[in-house]
Structure formats: C-alpha cells, structure tokens
Design a protein around this nucleic acid. Structure first.
Length: 169
DNA sequence: CTCCGCCTACCAA
DNA sequence: TTGGTAGGCGGAG
C-alpha cells in the first residue's frame, strides 16, 4: 500500500535526483529533470527518522553507482503494487554487478520465462528505481546497447563509468 | 480484446 | 553485413 510519498532530493555530480519514499521504503527515483528540481520536493527536515535513514542510504548508493562502484547498502525498496513478473525481473537485475552485463534474453531465462524476452524489456522500461536497480546493465543480445527509457545517453554514460564496452545501436 | 514495447532469431539481399 | 519481420509475452486501456 502506497499513499502519499515523501520526496527528497539527492545532489550528485549529475544533478539532483528525486527520491520518493512510501512507508515501506524507496518507491521511485527520478533522473534530474532539465531545469530545476520538483517544487514538491521537501528539505530533509520534519521527515521521519526512518525515511531520513533510508535517504542517507539512497544518497550514498546513488553516488557510488554513478561513480561506477558497487552500492554497499540500499534502502528497502517499495515494489508493492507492482506485478510479480516485474518484481522478478528487477530482482534479477539487482544481481548484475557493476561492469557486468546481461542480455534481455539472459534475464528472461534467469527468471524462468525464456520466451518473455520482450516483456523483460518492458519491465526494464517500467523500472521505477533506475540506477540503483541497474536496468542499464542489460544489453541487447547482439552486444548492442538496446534501449533505455531514461535516454540512451544516460545508459551509455553509466556503462562507460563501469568500464563496459558495447556496440553502437 | 487490442495495441505497443529497452527483444530475438531468421531469412533475403 | 544490413534490413525487414514474425513470433511471443506482459502490461495498459
């Protein structure tokens, strides 16, 4: 169950990401939008202690991944109201280490649905917590970069920082 | 039910 | 190699 989300910003070398928390954990992470931050984002005061702790973890993890390193700890992720299929895909994504990649087909096989390749792409596109749930580490079967809802340039950049080589689209 | 998508394997040039 | 494409599946409306 997810009602009102608490919005907090994370300032990084790439701009201000917006993190949204439910009572269960981090529910969404948005890439910095062109322009200024969401006016709805609040400062980390008057925020429940639990959420502040989660946010500290989010901020540290985000900066680590943006630098091409492994996130030591993640806050709890709120995937309630998501489908089982999506959750299974995202769980599989979390097992891919920085610098490693898998193809959509490999993810499909990993979750026991070898033919749901395209649907895996759909779940990646619906990932509400990019970067921390590393959908950018999924490439097309031919070694090409594949797609990315956050914009291919971001995917290229994230992969480059992890030292990953890929073929042109 | 229909339509669409961060895919793939396959076939024709 | 490159380009076109049918198959397959989950999600949204």
């Amino acid at each position: 169950m997810k009602t009102r989300l608490v919005e907090l910003l994370v300032s990084t070398c790439d701009g201000q990401f917006i993190a949204r928390y439910s009572e269960n954990g981090l529910a969404e992470l948005n890439f910095p939008s062109v322009g200024r931050a969401s006016p709805r984002a609040v400062k980390p005061i008057g925020v429940p202690t639990t959420i502040r702790r989660w946010h500290n973890a989010t901020a540290a993890a985000l900066k680590a991944v943006l630098a091409g390193r492994t996130a030591k700890t993640l806050p709890p992720l709120d995937w309630s109201d998501k489908t089982e299929f999506q959750k299974s895909v995202w769980r599989a994504l979390r097992k891919i280490r920085p610098g490693q990649t898998k193809s959509y087909g490999e993810i499909a096989r990993a979750i026991g649905k070898p033919k749901a390749v395209r649907a895996v792409g759909g779940a990646c596109g619906a990932n509400p917590i990019p970067v921390l749930v590393p959908c950018h580490r999924v490439l097309a079967a031919n070694g090409k970069i594949g797609g990315f809802s956050g914009g291919l340039n971001r995917k290229r950049e994230l992969l480059a920082r992890e030292g990953v080589k890929f073929l042109a689209p």
